[in-house]
């Protein structure tokens, strides 16, 4: 049975892992390749790099980071942020990434998802959806709108309809972030996750709000997520990947054991 994945996410700025709140007060936390290797050793099922480098000249630096990571961390690697063309995706994959995640670029030019899926296959195309709760109106169910630029810009797109649309366009996986919960450590928005995961066939990665190992369990059980992504709780060593997986296994969820014995 397919294991539920646990994925640490690293924010990378100009080739270094940074920590901060909502992209401000960034502090240097080390070399991405080194941290990725450590997480892989500790049982991470996949690594996500989110490139938050503002300047375009940072692209070459990111490719170098990807290259160095692929040479030492033998788990899947997804790179998000800053990829805006088929050629740029090609460069990132050639450097050693397995998937590329599109967010703002997909909203700006949805046909990019199709072009990339046709060239590299849907399995390499992740669409990141940042969603914010809209005030409930009487009689209607809860809805969410898609936001971009780290939550600063609204789009008028309904998050669930957008999810269905990007899958049709070629996205092979959805990375769904609750902007309301992101950075708050108040648990995942399982209602948002379930609304999307119950309507699409592609895997859904839950993101935004992880605080405890139990949150990972509810993201999968109630949110129907196939994978769960978190940043700060791992980076700040509040919880280990092993303790998260132990909680998931105790709840009866299939996980890949940490440090599986290979003779």
């Amino acid at each position: 049975m397919l294991a539920r994945r646990v994925i640490p996410c690293l924010d990378v700025d100009k080739g270094r892992v940074v920590k901060g709140t909502k992209f401000v007060n960034l502090t240097d936390e080390g070399d991405p390749a080194e941290l990725a290797e450590r997480y892989a050793r500790e049982g991470a099922d996949e690594i996500v790099f989110l490139d938050i480098t503002a300047a375009h000249e940072g692209r070459a630096t990111m490719l170098d980071v990807v290259r160095r990571t692929a040479s030492r961390a033998f788990v899947p690697l997804t790179v998000g942020g800053g990829v805006r063309s088929v050629q740029e995706m090609h460069d990132v994959l050639r450097a050693g990434a397995d998937k590329v995640s599109f967010n703002t670029a997909a909203v700006a030019a949805p046909e990019l998802l199709t072009a990339c899926a046709e060239r590299f296959g849907s399995q390499a195309v992740v669409c990141a959806i940042d969603a914010r709760r809209l005030p409930r109106t009487d009689g209607a169910g809860q809805t969410w709108e898609v936001v971009t630029h780290g939550g600063r810009r609204a789009t008028d797109l309904d998050a669930v309809s957008w999810a269905l649309r990007v899958v049709e366009l070629g996205a092979g996986e959805l990375l769904v972030t609750s902007i309301d919960r992101d950075g708050t450590r108040s648990g995942f928005d399982t209602e948002l996750l379930a609304s999307i995961a119950s309507r699409v066939r592609v895997p859904v990665i839950a993101s935004g709000g992880a605080s405890s190992p139990e949150d990972f369990v509810t993201a999968v059980r109630d949110g129907k997520a196939d994978a769960v992504l978190a940043a700060s709780i791992f980076h700040r060593r509040m919880h280990s990947i092993a303790s998260v997986k132990a909680a998931m296994a105790a709840a009866g969820l299939p996980v890949r054991p940490v440090g599986e014995a290979v003779a």
């Binding site: 049975m1 397919l2 399995q123 092979g172 996986e173 066939r201 196939d226």
Partner: peptide, 11 residues
Amino acid sequence: APTLPHIGWNV
């Protein structure tokens, strides 16, 4: 397949 593509770790 419950999900497609089949992405992830399996036995």
